[in-house]
Write a protein that binds this DNA or RNA. Structure first.
Lengths: 411, 411
DNA sequence: AGGCTTTTTTTCGAGCCTCAAAAAAATAGT
DNA sequence: ACTATTTTTTTGAGGCTCGAAAAAAAGCCT
């Protein structure tokens, strides 16, 4: 059960708080930090002195634009880029991408690679992932010791502890404990995250005005995925990454889904479903993977004339609308970000989607629900992984709990 | 954003922790509390000395059954029943019920009343609620000053701050700020809670073994409601009480629901829906309220022979199953408690329900999902309200934050 | 230029809180 | 009656945060 607060936890938490305030605000002064955290100036001063002395933060007088103000000028505090580094690995359909990111969040190196995820045997898939990470870590420009965390993101279902991929549409393989594999291989703590959850994390950092406490990120691609932030925190299932919006039931016993079941939202709104419908194929037809270029061509044709293509997007909108309606019955309406190649065709989807939502419990405020679109999911996923890894370093390594507070008194 | 931890918060939180440990465990000794909270013996000793001196806890040597143990016998700590009292108000269809509960959780007085909620005008409904509370508060046996909190529970949608009823099936009225009304009338802080959420809270206290971190309470009655506990905490919507399982969409454009929309789960599984189907009425027929006795008779007939009655329950099970399937896609499967008059007919519902779930994403572990039934919802709702109010007193009144720590040094 | 004002940051003493260890209390066994 | 065992209380030390005051670092004004 929940445990009492130990006296030494106090400092730990407040350290984490200060780091987090700096990461969020860019270059806040001590006074700003005191204001946002509610702690006293003296506490902030003491903690930031520690953090600077430990090389985690740096003072940067860069706040020049405030030259017009009277009084002692504020000293901006910034994250020391060299304090640590993290590594992100994003595995998606036929594509593997790795990046090294410094503690301040800047990409310092990256590498990408095509590979046939759908047909690769287990050992080979794991081998390629390990190999690309190894290449990046052996880069002579990189101090390998500074890499404090690896965050891997994958399209598919992961477990709720962010250790393993349980199931993924990009490979027939299941239950690959990537986090354990990478940890064992490189001795660096690692996580395995769901791609859509990382998209949501990235949106929260990119545009905290709009995406703060409650919002939904939906991936419209080969499959339909969702990342959900409720009350400021990422929502996950009890055992898995959860939030499998694409596999909510739209029509019981309906169209065949890639997951093998029938009537899922994805079976109407996934790329393959739109394609299948546009080509007047049976709803029972085996799902096929459609390239992004083909999807863009399909959308163009749908815009051009009323026909089966337009009808396919209409049906997709309907499925998404009723799905969102059911979701909104549970969590109340929230802003939605549509991400992925079919988000670029959202103009074709939106009318039917709104019409469907209006028929559901969430529909009371149908007009007020706002949709954003972002056609490119990969940068978002990587950014989310990076922030995930960095905030872990902030909290678990630079504000460690209980023991391991060595080397603190001497410079 | 989240705020730093002040030094004085520490004591406050640990006080709350100790009280909570006592409420949960019954009569724990100081040593037991130290073990469960992770705090040191001396801290527990100091805090419990305070609490005893303030009259919140009492020492009770009642732990006789441990007579066989060596060493200094443990002194059990218990909640002082006279430390405070709370009042619960449960408003359901045509029924109003009030109870006074002492700080230890025992009911000390109660009163119930029939009333025609469906046709009462606004003033009258509010008036009756205020009047019954006033009668209880004026009871000469009750020290009115000790009543620290009123928790009201209602069937319907409440706002997420637990202040107002937004919409309810038991009355055509909407947006009644019951919490504010009661607070203003009696000067006692009050909340307005959703009935199913309170059922879930009650289950958590009644059977913490089974209902702890993740479970679902579903009310099968006139309407279909849900209380959801995820990761140990009650799940609510972003603006409303949320969790409107009954208004997830089962069949787009399907049967007419009491909420005015079509195809909701409730439009197939609510009492009126089962009745409508069993009577071979149209799916567009206006929902009617069916008495509990009629429903029990219907269930008996359905058990007796295969006919439209049995088919009606089958359809209800199907709707519930697909609804749960969609829910499980989002949160992963969890144990379910079925509550309410139709829970007594769960034997008729279960086969179709399981069959439906097996066709959904949650169905992978279809067999392992366990269902409990509890035909009587009212005691659960009251118990939930009581615990809600008591834990509020524990945390906000007996472990107050920041200021208001007067009258502490003198007995 | 020099003094004054304003704002930020640091320093210092006081007050709490928790912890660990020792002491005290209460009981069972010998 | 005495010892062993276990629980509870007491005590002293160390740490943390806070508020107030001092120090620092500018700009403003005469």
């Amino acid at each position: 059960m929940s445990v009492g607060i130990r006296h030494d936890d106090l400092r730990r938490r407040n350290r984490a708080m200060v780091i987090s305030a700096v990461r969020r605000a860019g270059q806040p002064s001590r006074t700003e930090i005191a204001a946002t955290t509610g702690l006293s100036h003296s506490t902030i001063s003491a903690i930031s002195a520690d953090l600077i002395q430990e090389g985690i933060l740096t003072e940067s007088k860069a706040s020049e634009p405030t030259a017009l103000k009277r009084g002692r000028p504020q000293i901006g505090l910034a994250l020391n880029p060299e304090a640590a580094a993290v590594l992100t690995v994003v595995l998606s359909l036929n594509f593997l991408s790795v990046a090294v990111i410094d503690y301040a969040g800047q990409v310092v190196a990256e590498e990408q690679q095509r590979l046939d995820t759908l047909v690769m045997p287990r050992d080979e898939l794991i081998g390629e992932c390990v190999a690309i990470v190894r290449r990046r870590l052996q880069d002579p420009d990189l101090d390998i010791g500074s890499v404090a965390r690896i965050a891997m993101g994958i399209q598919g279902i992961t477990d709720s502890n962010a250790r393993a991929m349980l199931w993924s549409p990009i490979t027939p393989l299941t239950d690959i404990p990537f986090a354990d594999i990478l940890e064992k291989e490189f001795g660096i703590s690692a996580t395995m995250e769901n791609d859509c959850n990382m998209m949501a994390v990235a949106l929260q950092w990119r545009d905290p005005e709009r995406y703060r406490d409650d919002f939904i990120a939906i991936l419209l691609s080969h499959g339909i995925g969702m990342g959900l932030v409720l009350k400021g925190a990422l929502f996950t299932g009890t055992h898995s990454s959860g939030g499998e919006f694409g596999h909510m039931i739209h029509r019981p016993g309906g169209a065949l889904c890639r997951c093998g079941r029938r009537g899922c939202v994805e079976a109407y709104a996934g790329n393959y479903a739109i394609w299948r419908s546009a080509m007047r194929m049976s709803e029972d037809a085996e799902p096929v993977d459609v390239g992004d270029a083909d999807m863009r061509a399909l959308a163009a044709k749908a815009r051009e004339r009323d026909g089966p293509e337009r009808e396919a997007y209409r049906r997709a909108g309907e499925a998404l609308g009723f799905g969102l309606g059911s979701l909104f019955a549970l969590i109340d309406p929230a802003p939605v970000a549509m991400v992925g190649v079919s988000a670029a065709a959202f103009d074709l989807i939106e009318p039917a989607l709104r019409e469907a939502i209006a028929q559901t419990a969430g529909g009371q405020h149908s007009e007020s629900i706002s949709f954003d679109t972002e056609p490119n999911e990969l940068p978002l996923i990587r950014e989310g992984c990076a922030m995930r890894a960095l905030t872990f370093v902030d909290q678990e390594i630079f504000a460690p709990g209980g023991l391991a507070r060595a080397g603190k008194h001497v410079a």
